[in-house]
């Protein structure tokens, strides 16, 4: 029996809606293609879902129960990121990872080996390539999100991801920021083998702000350590604004707008810092 080299965790939605060419509904086929593309020899894939979701799964995707609470926190059911990463770690695979459920892999054995090789030494954070239909082989990369992450199991075990959920932003930023603050190497990777059917943002602004508040809560005790990363002065000020404003979310005029703008500005800075170690995988 082949040893599991990589354990990937995700949360497959029961229904995916996407617009294909000519406006046709393409979500079901796209999701099926995504799920079929993930497993490979040595790569094990888990999906965490609450009982009310129960997506139809093809062979090779292992279901696992998701702990409750995501719907209460973010307004729709799903799975906690921390639970997903813990489930991946529990497989005993030396490299574990997270992938968003709408990412299609076009990863041959060479690409998988290269990703695995690099992920043994640190976190590999991959941007997605946006396409308009399944057969499109080239498209622009989305630099402000990391839809596939791979890392050594030991690194994953040292991350605190409490409060983040699939389908809501910021968890990817916090994983990478937390890792960088711990001195873990992070490589930002663009590979044409990670495709995403372009769509409008699916998350709500309140959910985005709540997730941002979670990030700020994690970041606050480490505020002093941020200085070593070389943030620009505006980003430094944005962090301080976020820390001051977050406890008052929903209490006073302008707080939500300030958080949105400061969060966006801080996120841009995180991307800039991470792209100091940027790579392309052929």
């Amino acid at each position: 029996m082949r040893v599991t080299e990589v354990a990937l965790a995700t949360s497959v939605p029961p229904v995916l809606r996407r617009t294909g060419p000519g406006g046709a509904e393409a979500g079901r086929d796209w999701l099926a293609a995504c799920m079929a593309s993930w497993p490979a020899p040595g790569w094990r894939v888990l999906t965490l879902n609450p009982p009310e979701e129960a997506p139809a799964l093809p062979p090779g995707i292992e279901p696992a129960p998701a702990a409750p609470g995501v719907a209460a926190a973010y307004g729709r059911p799903g799975a906690w990121i921390a639970d997903a990463l813990a489930a991946a770690c529990a497989t005993g695979a030396p490299v574990v990872g997270l992938v968003n459920a709408d990412i299609l892999f076009d990863l041959d054995a060479g690409r998988r080996a290269a990703l695995l090789d690099r992920a043994r030494g640190g976190i590999v954070a991959c941007n997605r390539m946006d396409v308009l239909h399944a057969s499109q082989a080239e498209g622009p990369f989305y630099r402000y999100g990391y839809d596939l992450m791979l890392m050594p199991r030991g690194v994953a075990a040292g991350l605190d991801l409490t409060g983040f959920a699939f389908g809501v932003p910021w968890w990817d930023y916090w994983i990478l920021l937390d890792a960088v603050l711990q001195g873990v190497p992070v490589a930002v990777v663009q590979c044409a083998g990670l495709r995403h059917l372009a769509h409008r943002e699916a998350w709500s602004e309140p959910a985005r702000r709540r997730a941002l508040a979670v990030l700020v809560g994690h970041l606050a005790p480490r505020r002093a350590a941020l200085g070593a990363l070389g943030l620009d002065p505006v980003a430094e000020a944005a962090v301080d604004l976020l820390m001051a404003a977050t406890p008052h979310l929903g209490e006073a005029y302008g707080v939500e707008e300030m958080m949105s703008v400061a969060g966006t500005r801080f996120g841009m800075e995180v991307v800039r810092i991470l792209e100091r170690d940027a790579w392309r995988l052929a």
């Binding site: 290269a114 690099r118 630099r143 392309r280």
Partner: peptide, 17 residues
């Protein structure tokens, strides 16, 4: 590191240039 990797230098015009 294996051969298919190419280092990228990214200049983002959102930031000071």
């Amino acid at each position: 590191m294996t051969a298919p990797w190419t280092r990228r230098i990214v200049v983002d015009l959102l930031h000071p240039v």
